[in-house]
Design a protein around this nucleic acid. Structure first.
Lengths: 299, 299
DNA sequence: ATCTATCCATTCGGAAAACTCATCCCTTCG
DNA sequence: CGAAGGGATGAGTTTTCCGAATGGATAGAT
């Protein structure tokens, strides 16, 4: 017995075209068939569903409410199939381009410096980097794989944890030789705390994690990207809270110092995210393997 | 000429079943055809695509890498069609159930009290309320329509702005008769500020918007839901920052007072979100119209 | 008002696609 | 080693789908 309850898929393809054009004749042209064929297929679909999809006004047809719902849905499904088929054929021909959705700061500080190694090992895969911050749609945006920050709870996705953040307090070395050197947590009250505008709970989280008193707080500027915060801290605008992997160089060179030993874990982690189907593409598999290698080498 | 480049959809349906079972024979059973037919259709699909989808090891077949990608994709597409078809038929029979994805606090304080009015006007629509906070998937989660807080930038969705938040500072009336009544912004430094843990930038945003000095801040407790904050403020635990629509009752009864006239707009707004196809369903249209009416009556 | 072009519906004969049946081949397992 | 199970293939049949012709209805033009 049939497990799937599906109408004739040919009829669906025809219906979608007719709905798109609002005309049997026009749709028939696209499908390379006669108007007669289109008319009959749609009729058969209506018979199957037991409900009208169009209202016929003898020179003009219009979608019913049900028809409108159904046409959008079928349109979506056919788009998926069509895009996937093109993808499959292109991919098999080796014409694949890996599209990576990348977080701005993670991308520029961590990923981009390592990408040459990937290109070297895989010269046949061309890359397409897309800076993407918020929500993204894999099917529409043509993104193969994305790097996201969060808690790894994205629905219907293939998810690889990359790394958690280690958060550390840093400041310019000038602060340590000034009037209130950061020798204990209490001294923090004398320095402006630089904030990240899209992660506003950062300091809160830190104070709680290390158990520092925070009765009085002096706020510094609120900036939008980590690289701005790094610059602000180096310039002595205040004390910053930063993921340690972003400031390896600055700590080594002494442009920034970490006054406290505490290393707390950040409010989320980085993940490699892909759709179920895309994760089967060889270029995605190769990239995934490479990313996990890179992560392994970091530890 | 054909605008869409699609393989034979019948072949796709067969391929999907074969991939699902890993067997022509088994798939043929499901499709109510002979093994021979299934074999031929898949072969024709492979001819069309010019690449093998299975490796044949004469008693056993296995998906190729390309086949795995394609099968997941086609599976997804057919699921979409199947679910939509069922939805369509049920919906036309009036058996539809409206599934609403609802934010916890908005839902309990705003939506739930009004829902009886909706039920009364539409007794034939049964409701299914799903508490959903974060990301949600319309196709998989079977949600028809969701209420979300944000900036209205969700991809591929039908979006109706519902209302923006009007943020107001409130406190227990006891505060106003105590040692440091809130007669000006400067007095705020003597009172603990209650925070919302998932909207940590709230106070920051408020201080900036009203131009109040915030050199010194005394933090109160950080709570997870608005209804907890409301309770904390009533109990005199500190000064709270709340969306005004949530505390109409408390302000009227005098359980809370708003010491400052300033009403700033919140960091985002509430939206009614639906998918393109779902938004055509009559029960969704009805609900949408009702929601907008309710919003209209509020203003 | 009539004519004409256009669009959808329908009928019927024909063609192509899909299906079945029978059979063959290969591998695995008892 | 023989039998069973699973896939491939060749030939013939059935079903579906399609094209051409035709009818009906309406909107727009004259």
């Amino acid at each position: 017995m049939p497990r799937r309850l599906l109408p004739s898929l040919n009829a669906l393809r025809t219906f979608e075209a007719v709905a798109r054009y609002g005309s049997f004749t026009r749709a028939a042209e696209e499908l390379n068939v006669t108007q007669s064929a289109a008319s009959r297929l749609v009729r058969s679909l209506e018979d199957y569903l037991q409900l009208p999809l169009f209202t016929r006004q003898s020179r003009h047809i219009e979608l019913t409410d049900e028809g409108r719902f159904y046409s959008k849905l079928i349109h979506e499904a056919l788009d998926l199939v069509e895009a996937g088929t093109v993808e499959l054929i292109d991919s098999a021909r080796g014409k694949g381009t890996l599209s990576i959705g990348m977080l701005p700061t993670f991308g520029t500080r961590w990923l981009l410096p390592r990408l040459p190694s990937f290109q070297e090992k895989n010269p046949d895969i061309s890359l397409n980097i897309i800076s993407s911050d918020g929500d993204l749609d894999f099917t529409k945006e043509r993104i193969d794989v994305a790097i996201r920050f969060g808690h790894g709870n994205w629905p219907d996705a293939i998810i690889d944890p990359l790394m958690s953040e280690e958060i550390v307090v840093v400041c310019s070395p000038k602060v340590m030789t000034g009037a209130f050197p950061l020798t204990d947590y209490a001294a923090l009250r004398h320095h402006p705390l630089i904030r990240h505008s899209t992660r506003p709970s950062g300091w809160d989280h830190w104070f709680r994690s290390v158990g520092a008193p925070r009765d009085v707080v002096k706020w510094g500027p609120s900036l939008e990207h980590f690289f701005m915060i790094i610059q602000a801290a180096i310039s002595g605008l205040g004390v910053a809270l930063l993921p340690s992997y972003l400031i390896q160089d600055e700590l080594k060179s002494g442009a920034l110092v970490a006054p406290f030993p505490a290393r707390i874990s950040g409010p989320g982690a980085y993940y490699l995210v892909s759709s179920a189907a895309k994760s089967e593409l060889s270029r995605v598999k190769i990239f995934r393997r490479w990313m996990l290698e890179q992560i392994g080498e970091m530890a």
